[in-house]
Nucleic acid binder design. Structure first.
Lengths: 345, 345
DNA sequence: CTGTTAGCGCGTTCAA
DNA sequence: TTGAACGCGCTAACAG
């Protein structure tokens, strides 16, 4: 068996006490170390390939240098959050512990609390369902002073800090873009992909209506009632044909809507990006860029949100910011200019 | 500040010594505990919501109950591996620590070694590039006796255990499926999506050739030379038109190939799943199921591979299997019957 | 069979 | 600059 190298080994070899080894590694104020000894220690550490036992250190310092990421791995949005989180953690010497959000939300969240109580993690970042608030959890967070940052959850809630996207701005930017490029009056297609419609969807629709009004146009909203919803291509061919009779520019709340219409248009011999302008408010299925034609969309910057969330969390953990400061963080959407919105001139 | 509850608190409250608390929690042999006291302790634990300090426990036991997952989060295949890994870990009380595989492979792998030496993790699962072997790493693994299982790496290498898919079987199954359903002679389209072509691609091509020969048919392989490769739809329209002159059944090594041909066919007014049969050997971009028509494919069961890898790793970690046992684990592909291969009768 | 005491593991930190 | 104590749970040795 391979023997572990301990600080004791290093100290002995370098001819100093263990506290000096510790001081060299951590730059402890209050323990002076001569340049000579410092070099000696450093060299021995390299020579022996000494690595501090994270558990022992953690036990003493009360910090695990791990942040939990709470979310569902099969959700590609969560992955983007993870990416950003990893970036922030890497540059601060922290690690990411994956914690699966399973079927029973409450149970899982309990588990997170335990993890914190066990000192396995120093804080938590969660990709919550937008606008989903769980007051019990808020209670727990505040009772135990858990450093916690939510991504897309708890908008305007003063018990939990969250990173949120400005939905209104994103829709306005999308419309400005379409309008500037095509000069066609944009209609809005709202698919009920979740029931009831989420907070974001409502924000978006209102934003569309406001934009239209403020630009002196009449809003044209096609909102599917539950019954009308269909995945059948025949349905969408009919819909598209009818739609084309009166307009040729469409913004959809959900990427899938654009996909359906795009597909239908092509089957009807209508050129997407030329005869019809199509844009989606999101790319939650992450396929817009793979389609033909690729679909122009406003995308929620999950990566950035993860990064910002982690940075904030680290501020809490490292004591640079009081956990009582629950102020929110706002980000803007990304406009991905692809093929489904083209020049019409 | 919230005070931590320690085993001392529990012991005092329950009127026993700390060793009893420990014994109740771990079922330590050699320390008998009467049913009465056991219940008492359990109750106090619940009452105080006592949680064992993971760091202290880990320090004593030398086990962190964390497994590292080495891979790239933006790789959707890795995510499936993670899923399986989480499942295995959850049922054994382990946690998943994410470790990003970055630009410099060697550097990152060094980091993993450090993590192990720091006792932050008990073992490692890596989604390696297929067939990529790094002898330095193998050395390190064996020198330090690191529990390590590779997914898709190190085929037939006796220094590292890996979970691998049977490429040959997958191609044969695909061909059997297409043949049985359509009775059309299948051609093979090989896109050079990586350079040079990976191990799996070679395995697949050979498997195709063998299958054809053994069924008394002449293999028809369209292998793109680097120059010919193109993403342009015009190119694929021409290609498809030419192809259709002689056959109407095609297996592609990479999903993208099927996507191109499918798209081209539709533009040519050729019905996919009827006039032309299309199937892909993989779904690495995870979009086959979202397209119209959805593309039938053989899929690498990454989730299962992650699960098996983690189970094996846990055997090593828990001492149920010697780390010297580097035997490989083989899995079979998943056939996803979608729309691009239809009945022709 | 039931339970206690004492010492350990390893790095950090404070008083000397 | 150092010795000694500490943090928290585990466990071998030991005692009733």
């Amino acid at each position: 068996m391979v023997k572990r190298v301990t600080s004791f080994d290093v100290a002995k070899r370098a001819g100093v006490s263990r506290s000096v080894v510790s001081a060299v590694l951590n730059g402890t104020p209050g323990i002076g170390v001569s340049e000579e000894k410092r070099k000696m220690v450093l060299e021995v550490i390299r020579e022996l390939n000494y690595q501090v036992d994270a558990q022992a250190r953690g036990m003493k310092t009360g910090r695990s240098h791990c942040l939990a990421a709470y979310g569902n791995v099969s959700n590609s949005l969560f992955l983007q959050v993870l990416e950003g989180m990893q970036e922030a953690c890497a540059s601060h010497g922290y690690h990411v512990l994956l914690y699966p959000s399973g079927s029973s939300y409450e149970q899982r969240i309990e588990g997170l609390l335990d993890l914190f109580l066990q000192r396995r993690i120093d804080g938590i970042i969660a990709l919550d369902r937008p606008h989903k608030v769980n007051e019990d959890w808020v209670q727990a967070v505040n009772k135990h002073q858990i450093p916690y940052v939510s991504v897309e959850g708890y908008p305007h809630h003063d018990g939990v800090p969250s990173v949120l996207m400005d939905y209104e701005e994103s829709v306005h930017r999308a419309l400005n873009f379409m309008w500037k490029r095509t000069k066609r009056i944009p209609a809005y297609l709202e698919l009920h992909h979740q029931n009831p419609l989420g907070w974001g969807d409502n924000e978006r629709r209102c934003a569309y209506e406001r934009w239209m009004t403020s630009h002196g146009m009449e809003p044209v909203v096609y909102s599917e009632e539950d019954g009308i919803w269909s995945e059948r291509i025949v349905y969408w061919k009919q819909w598209t044909e009818k739609f084309m009779a009166s307009s040729c520019s469409l913004l959809t709340n959900w990427s899938r809507g654009a996909v359906y219409v795009s597909r239908a248009a092509q089957l009807l011999g209508i050129q997407v990006g030329k005869d019809i302008q199509l844009m989606a408010c999101d790319n939650s299925e992450r396929i817009n860029q793979h389609l033909f034609p690729a679909i122009t969309s406003m995308e929620v910057p999950y990566r950035e949100m993860g990064l910002l969330a982690a940075q904030r969390l680290l501020e809490y953990v490292e004591g640079q910011r009081a956990v009582e400061d629950k102020s929110g963080i706002w980000v803007k959407a990304l406009l991905e200019d692809r093929e489904s919105v083209g020049l019409t001139t």
